[in-house]
Simulated assay, not measured.
Amino acid sequence: MTFDDLLAMFVNPELLERYGPRFVDGLLVTGKLVAISFTLGAVLGLLLALARMSKSQLLQRLAAGYIYFFRGSPLLAQLFLLYYGLGSLKSFWQDVGLWWFFRDAWFCTLLAFTLNTAAYQAEIFRGSLLAVAPGQYEAAKALSLKRSTTFFKVILPQSLIVAIGPLGNELILMIKASAIASLVTIYDLMGVTKLAFSRSFDFQIYLWAAVLYLLIVEIVRRSLKHIEARLGRHLR
């Protein structure tokens, strides 16, 4: 068997020409889904972390309950609960004017991913904020800095250095978990892969998907490694 024959087993030019553009579209959908949900999840996660660290028992318990539920139940179950469960309440959502949201698989998936990653990011942020030395708070207080200035200018930048690694791991896990979006008719990378395989019955379709997921993860890993090195360059 020649190299060309071996290559043809994994890269069929005709198949690539037919489904290549769809794979690119699916890749863009996956990237968009993960980027938006991860960003929104970071904002919500930071708020949850602050609630967990607040002096209010009510806020602590509400945040803890949220984190317990979304970390303790499968993302797939959460997605089905939002899309099929809440989506079945058509009359109610029409009355409150939100049916346009819950009837759309894209918005439900985006919401499920955001709520799920926010729970994980909340614990990451909480751990990184607690890792900041108490002396930093005392120094800011001695300088009569406002609480907002202390948090955004002193505490948060230092905590991000600690959080960047775990946040990167969470982002990579999200990229891989995004494949379940195809189960609610989202044509992301895995959705396009399933569609292409159902028409071609060629196993190399799934090989292409695996390679693309590996490529995305590697790009993200290297980018985060570079960012972490830049943020922590003064610590060397």
Rank of each mutant, 00 (worst) to 15 (best):
T2F: 05
D5P: 00
D5F: 08
L6S: 12
P13A: 04
L15S: 11
R18M: 07
Y19N: 11
Y19Q: 06
G20W: 13
G20I: 06
V24D: 04
D25G: 01
D25L: 12
V29P: 00
T30Y: 05
K32V: 05
K32I: 13
A35K: 02
S37V: 07
F38G: 08
L40P: 01
V43Q: 15
L47F: 01
L48I: 11
L48N: 02
A49W: 08
A49K: 02
L50F: 04
S56F: 04
L59S: 07
L59K: 04
Q60P: 00
R61Y: 07
A63E: 00
A64D: 07
R71V: 04
S73C: 11
L76I: 15
L82C: 13
Y83W: 06
Y84V: 08
Y84R: 08
G87F: 11
Q94M: 15
L98P: 15
D104P: 00
A105H: 15
W106G: 07
C108N: 10
T109C: 13
A112R: 12
F113D: 04
A118K: 02
A119F: 03
Q121F: 05
F125A: 04
R126T: 02
G127N: 00
S128P: 02
L129M: 08
V132T: 07
P134M: 09
Q136P: 03
E138D: 14
S144I: 12
T149E: 13
T150P: 10
L156W: 04
P157F: 10
P157Y: 13
Q158I: 02
L160K: 02
L160H: 06
V162F: 11
I164W: 05
L167Q: 06
N169H: 10
N169D: 02
L171N: 05
M174C: 13
A179P: 09
I180K: 09
S182T: 13
V184D: 06
V184F: 05
M190D: 00
G191W: 13
V192N: 03
A196P: 05
F197S: 10
S200K: 00
F201E: 12
D202Q: 13
Y206V: 15
Y206R: 12
L207F: 15
V211H: 08
E218K: 14
R221L: 14
S223G: 13
L224Y: 14
A229K: 15
L231M: 15
R233C: 00
H234I: 03
L235G: 01
